[in-house]
Design a protein around this nucleic acid. Sequence first.
DNA 1: ATATTTTACTTGCAAAATGCAAGTTACTTG
DNA 2: CAAGTAACTTGCATTTTGCAAGTAAAATAT
Lengths: 164, 164
Amino acid sequence: MVSPVAAKPSPKHRSGCPVSISLDVFGDRWSLLIIRDIMVRGLRTFSEFQHSGEKISTNILADRLRHLENAGIIVAERAADDARSIHYRLTPKGIALAPVLLELFIWAAHHEPTGAPPAYVEQLEQNREAILAETYRRWQHRDPTPLMPPFKSPTRSPKGNRNR
Amino acid sequence: MVSPVAAKPSPKHRSGCPVSISLDVFGDRWSLLIIRDIMVRGLRTFSEFQHSGEKISTNILADRLRHLENAGIIVAERAADDARSIHYRLTPKGIALAPVLLELFIWAAHHEPTGAPPAYVEQLEQNREAILAETYRRWQHRDPTPLMPPFKSPTRSPKGNRNR
DNA sequence: ATATTTTACTTGCAAAATGCAAGTTACTTG
DNA sequence: CAAGTAACTTGCATTTTGCAAGTAAAATAT
């Protein structure tokens, strides 16, 4: 049995629309950043998330980790070497959010002043499939090598407003 | 001049990461639903949004419309026929969120019990580009014909947890 | 062996965001 | 010209967030 997801009549959701349900699950300011940290920055532990750049407070972090775990997006497991440490990893449901993160990334890099170098963004756009495949490969191999660096502060203006 | 986006050193953002910035702009429970309503359901007015299924209260709706307009994602324009009515439409920056919404949709349809029929989701996945092209075409032509119906309540369990 | 750190959290409280109900103002329709 | 209707605003209660300061258990340093 491969954990069949229960088909409950969604008690906690506002509507049956998948977009709406996505937002019910991780539609806040922090959840996707935690997922990003695990997925592309190779972070695993509470304190790594805590010091990951954007100052999340510990109560909120604990709360979000709980929620993401309850939603089946991450799993917590004790570290082999340190009995205090807990490693959070993405489940299949969690790694499946890679395309969402990628599109979010590309959108903001195009339309907001971000810290992502234009040439880098160009690369991502041109090689969506390859990037996703590599992300997935690292997940399978539990390879914590960061796929991307943390982008610090805006280097320049967003790319021209060409659409499509 | 084609409205060059100012290259300010992002005063209101938590970090330079594009994902983080996206969340700063529309990372709440309602913004993307409004964008979805305009993009794929053909809704235009305040009262249409208000009665669009998931019960947003009017003060929040007004606030989100203001924010989305300030962010350059939507524009408000008076209706030609009715001087009271205001039509909200997506800007190029707004329609560029189509891939994000599509991936959110596909993710939830696969991993949560939603109201979207599996066969329909299959179609979407197989024809991402075509769907996006059609979405974009309707936006260009200001065609308010809904691309998708509102999905009511979960019909069955989410599709099997195959990844990739 | 004991003191200090480190890790993963809680707890308490103030501040901000959200939700609900009831206005309000400017049109438009009967 | 009275009664809608559209797009909000306002007040207030509830919930969520953020900040600072704990705490328990395990690891490390002396």
